[in-house]
Amino acid sequence: MSHDMSPATPREILICTVAGLLDGCRCVAVGAASPVPAAGAMLARALRDTAGEPPLRISVLGSEAHNFFTNGSAELFDAAGQGRIDAFFLGGGQIDRHGNINLVGVGDYPRSAPRWPGSFGSGYLYYVVPRVILYREEHSPRVFVEKVDFISTPGTSEPDVYRPGGPYALLTGKALFDFDKDKRGFRLASLHPDHTLEEVTAATGFAFDHDPDPATTPGPDAATLHLLRTRVMDELSETYPAFAAELRARIQTTDRKATA
């Protein structure tokens, strides 16, 4: 079990951070092609089970083993509309200072270049799911822009618009942010290990609030890391075999470096 003692990789810290953001949730849904959010949700579920706490229901789109819906692809949206989905994850080709998300493409719509796949369920779920976690590992000025080229879904709405949901946190490869609905902007919550405020400021195309000396994103304790490297990794392999294999390889590389 020597590899269990190797330090957490940056990806593992992200996964553990996701799990922490799901504290208190009863039911979490994860969209397609989202391995880190899926791993975070699976870790949160495993931690609950280990602690003997009430179970966390998770539904991973595209998984057969980790998806309990039986009413087709409309059911997730119906359940969200009923208030049964506490948390969901959204990415974005562009995300701007007000939490607006662009999943459609760059340039003048409709002839976007590059064109990205499209808005998926964002034009609805961002409004009705209370805890939408924005996850985008690439932290660069081309992703985090002052103003998105196309609003797939807006960060905030006018007071008369039905909007129980919205952005709850923004997690990137460099940092974790909160979202302040009243100020319509992000606030730096913590920097991941080995990243600096200067670096994050330079990599972000919009201004954000922060403490003069921001906190560091905490890493997992040994028990959490062990759970992630055993049960969660096995569960993840069903839906994201390539991602799980890569994560395992990284852990071994880190282990070799640590023991060298």
Binding site: G81, V104, Y109, P110, S119, G123, Y124, L125, Y126, Y127, V128, F150, I151, S152, T153, P154, S157, E158, V161, Y162
Partner: peptide, 12 residues
């Protein structure tokens, strides 16, 4: 349906 208001999806 809920959602959509304020998006460029709706505008288009």
């Amino acid at each position: 349906m809920r959602g959509l208001i304020g998006s460029d999806l709706l505008r288009n």
